[in-house]
Amino acid sequence: MSELRGIYTLWRREVKRFSRERTRFVSSFVQPLLWLIIFGTGLGSSLHGSMVGLNYQEFIFPGIIGQTLLFTSMFMGISVIWDRQFGFLKEILVAPISRISIFSGKMLGVSTDSMIQGLIVLMLGFLIGVHVTLSMVIAVLPLMLLITLGMVCIGLTLASFMSSLESYGTIMTFVNLPMFLLSGALFPVNSLPSWLKWVVYFNPLTYGVDALRAVILSGAYMSPFSIQVDVLYLLIFDAVMILVGSYAFSLRK
């Protein structure tokens, strides 16, 4: 009971802090917009007709949602370093609450933050002609949770081994961008050369983007995987990362 209350209060802190950062809020939908409008229009106009029944903007839209989830989860997960630097982590660590609960509160809080960002981007769908319905939102939410949980844990794990945010650029280069570019967010994965295919098929975000596409674009899109495979892969990914993340977190004094 008191552990649940602890998790809840840590979750609430995360969401409160997040929703109070106005500049981040603005940039959170400007960046996806740039991708959708500029990149989408630019590349899309030279690809006309190649993706049957879909324009390119529609095709990358679920990919951009996936990207938003990935980048936010990773960045906010790593932000636990701030807590450490400003001494706040100490206050939580001496509280009569288990490490697992602290980890869970943080993880769920950051996941919620990322999902809020993802939802904002989803709402922008009308700009490119995607009709967002309530049932679509209800179907997308659990998928978003599945995608973010594992990503947040990657961020929290990395944060356990970092002492400052300076190396965030390195992580951007070696984790975020490869995961994004190799997820099929920007191009279809089934016609790739086989050496690249293996990497793409290993990447959990591939399954996340694929599932989002299946739901958001419904019948218009020929999915390489069934939704069951997507969900199963994400579940395994989450379970592994939660174990790794909570272990890494418990190592910190």
Binding site: S2, G6, T9, K16, F86, G87, E91, A95, P96
Partner: peptide
């Protein structure tokens, strides 16, 4: 109860919110 040598409050929360959070953590 502990008051650390180095600051350990969350400066993005209000004073009251910091205390409420503490009360929640300590049940």
């Amino acid at each position: 109860g502990i008051v650390f040598q180095d600051p350990s409050v969350d400066d993005r929360l209000t004073g009251r919110e910091n205390l409420e959070m503490h009360a929640d953590l300590y049940g």
